[in-house]
């Protein structure tokens, strides 16, 4: 790993100032970035550690929204009674990320900003129609994710919080790649307060996280596992690697969606 200057500000404005510097890079929990640095795939001149900023941490309910600070760890979300009461799918999701040690460091902001095509959080953000709040603006999840490892975040922009609308029901069904524990194909299913159903899929798309319109339409009119049978999920646009073919992933989308429907009915 190349060397760099390390700074750990305790307030957000100092972090944003530090990130204005040439070659500065934000560090969340580091559970992806540190391995990346070890492989010399990134070489920042300054690393701005966000873990000392208390205002980025915490979980609170605001009316019909659940607000999770950008620096909140997966472990904190998994252990939160507020999250379990409001959006149980998020507890299922966070409690299956990596292992306990990864969950004690990794953060929601880091996961979303990295937008790994097999990461879990993007599926929840997209399925629930979350709003990603940064130090500059609010971004709808639909606009936030822009393909593999790509988001609309600009240099120096820090995710301060994620606002999730509280659905009527939610679940996360993960089919994990057992060695990496990332998603081979996983589905976040949300039944919204207005009765509409939203299906976020991660691990499968060649272009990263996506919603499946066909499944959403079928389940919005008939919320049953058998409704999934009638939907055709195309292998086109699914990723292909040594772990699974596009056809296998397309099949998994249906299997995991069915399991999701069964889990909340």
């Amino acid at each position: 790993m190349y060397n760099f200057d390390f700074t750990r500000p305790t307030d957000l404005s100092a972090a944003v100032d530090a990130l204005r510097g040439d070659g500065a890079q934000a560090l969340g929990g580091g559970q992806t970035l540190i391995p990346v640095l070890k492989q010399r795939l990134a070489a920042p001149t300054t690393l701005v550690d966000l873990s000392g900023i208390d205002s980025l941490k915490g979980i609170r309910r605001m009316g019909d929204m659940l607000v999770i600070g950008g620096g909140t760890t997966h472990g904190a979300v998994a252990a939160s009674g507020d999250v379990a009461a409001a959006i149980p799918g998020l507890v299922q999701l966070t409690s299956k990320i990596g292992d306990p040690q990864v969950r004690n460091r990794g953060t929601i902001g880091g996961s979303l900003a990295n937008n790994d095509p097999a990461a879990c959080y993007p599926a929840a953000a997209l399925a629930l129609g979350a709003t990603i709040e940064t130090n500059q603006r609010e971004i709808a999840a639909e606009d936030f994710f822009q393909g593999l490892y790509a988001t609309c975040l600009e240099d120096g922009e820090v995710i301060t919080a994620v606002k999730f609308p509280i659905p009527a029901a939610s679940t996360y069904q993960k089919f994990e790649q057992p060695a990496s524990r990332f998603s081979l194909t996983s589905v976040f299913l949300a039944k919204m307060q207005d009765g509409s159903v939203r299906v976020g899929v991660t691990g499968a798309g060649a272009d990263g996280v996506f919603r499946h319109e066909g499944l959403e339409q079928a389940l919005s009119s008939d919320f049953s596992a058998s409704a999934v049978d009638g939907v055709s999920v195309s292998a086109e646009g699914m990723s292909n690697d040594l772990h699974a073919t596009p056809e296998y992933r397309a099949n998994l989308v249906k299997v995991m969606t069915k399991r999701a429907v069964e889990a909340v009915t």
């Binding site: 390390f6 750990r8 560090l27 580091g30 559970q31 540190i34 391995p35 690393l47 550690d49 873990s51 000392g52 040690q101 990864v102 460091r105």
Partner: peptide, 9 residues
């Protein structure tokens, strides 16, 4: 995992 945390953190 102390291999994935910086000392300065």
């Amino acid at each position: 995992k102390s291999c994935s945390v910086f000392a300065s953190a």
